[in-house]
């Protein structure tokens, strides 16, 4: 195993990535200012474009790091002395999650076909908040894949030492289990990204709902709905893909009614109710009901994401 190559790649990711994440912060602040200063507003799209290019560059840098993990690191079976496998880790785990969400949101804002200035300004403000939050809460470059790194280094130190076979096996099996059932799982490549893509579309739908309320213009409600329905399809399929994963990964463990699963289902039922209510917005009271459900759904999105870090459970990193 070429762990020195991996360590160099990790260091390079931090060295190049840190200036990039500072640029994300600077552009996001500029974008926030541009949404409130009329003279700067006409350049809004350039800020969004700059942020998008910056985020794409950062994501490619992370993808390169993941590629080096796949090529340089191997897990050795301590009993047979053969290669048990490599780590094919997708670029949306640990601190990369929120970065990925912000990247998708930025893409949606940049490629939004509706060029109305109110709409673009609102989305710009939303994106600025996401960019700033990425810097302060979810910097993936400061310590790239911190948890994976710690787990692998610990395994590597024991595997290359003169430790007893039993000690080596104790270091190997948990990481092997995580490699097969978590890092390399086909569901890891499909379930989380679909959820993050849906979260990004729901953020845009939420802004549509806010604008409908503040500007009293149905066009924003329709725009919000167009994003919500796309997000709902992706969310539903993404959630369904999590089910067979849960059956195998958490077999025998009490995962049903886990806090994160509860709140995810709450979010799903809120959006499902919103889409049902929206069919009858011409009826009295249904417009307000639909709008409220849209807000409740997005509250669910935020709480679902935050709950991973806040509420201990099987689907959580808290506690």
């Amino acid at each position: 195993m070429n762990s020195s190559g991996y360590l160099l790649a990790r260091e390079m990711t931090t060295r190049v990535g840190q200036p990039l994440i500072y640029l994300v912060l600077i552009i996001s602040i500029a974008l926030a200012v541009a949404t409130v200063v009329p003279a700067m507003r006409r350049n809004l799209r350039y800020y969004v474009l700059a942020l998008f290019l910056n985020l794409v560059a950062g994501w490619l840098l992370l993808a390169n790091f993941h590629y080096r993990i796949a090529t340089d690191l191997v897990l050795i079976d301590p009993n047979r002395g053969t290669i048990a496998g490599r780590f094919y880790i997708p670029v949306w785990i640990e601190d990369e999650k929120f970065f990925f969400w912000t990247l998708i949101l930025c893409g949606l804002v940049l490629f939004s076909r509706y060029k109305d200035q109110v709409w673009q300004t609102a989305l710009g403000a939303l994106l600025a908040v996401f960019g700033i939050l990425t810097f302060f809460t979810s910097n993936p470059f400061a310590e790239p894949l911190k948890d994976f790194h710690a787990a692998f280094i610990q395994y590597s130190m024991i595997a290359t030492s003169n430790a007893e076979p039993l000690v080596k096996a104790q270091a190997y099996f948990p990481l092997y289990g995580k490699m097969v059932g978590f890092y390399n799982s086909e569901y890891m490549w499909t379930h989380p990204p679909m959820l993050f893509i849906s979260y990004a579309t729901f953020a845009v739908a939420f802004m549509g709902g806010i604008l409908m309320l503040t500007k009293r213009d149905d066009v924003y409600e329709k725009l919000g709905y167009s994003y919500a329905k796309a997000g709902f399809i992706i969310l539903t399929i993404g959630m369904l893909l999590g089910y067979p994963w849960a059956l195998t990964a958490w077999s025998g463990e009490p995962w049903w009614y886990d806090p994160k699963i509860n709140i995810t289902l709450m979010m799903w039922v809120a959006y499902s109710a919103y889409l049902h209510a929206r069919l009858y917005t011409h009826r009295r009271g249904m417009r307000v009901t639909a709008a409220s459900l849209n807000y409740l759904g997005f509250f669910g999105v935020v709480f679902t994401y935050v709950s991973t870090y806040l509420i201990p459970g099987i689907h959580s990193v808290a506690g």
């Binding site: 509860n262 289902l265 709450m266 709950s307 509420i311």
Partner: peptide, 8 residues
């Protein structure tokens, strides 16, 4: 589900 989450 909100109740369940809060209780957990």
């Amino acid at each position: 589900f909100i109740f369940g989450t809060t209780f957990s």
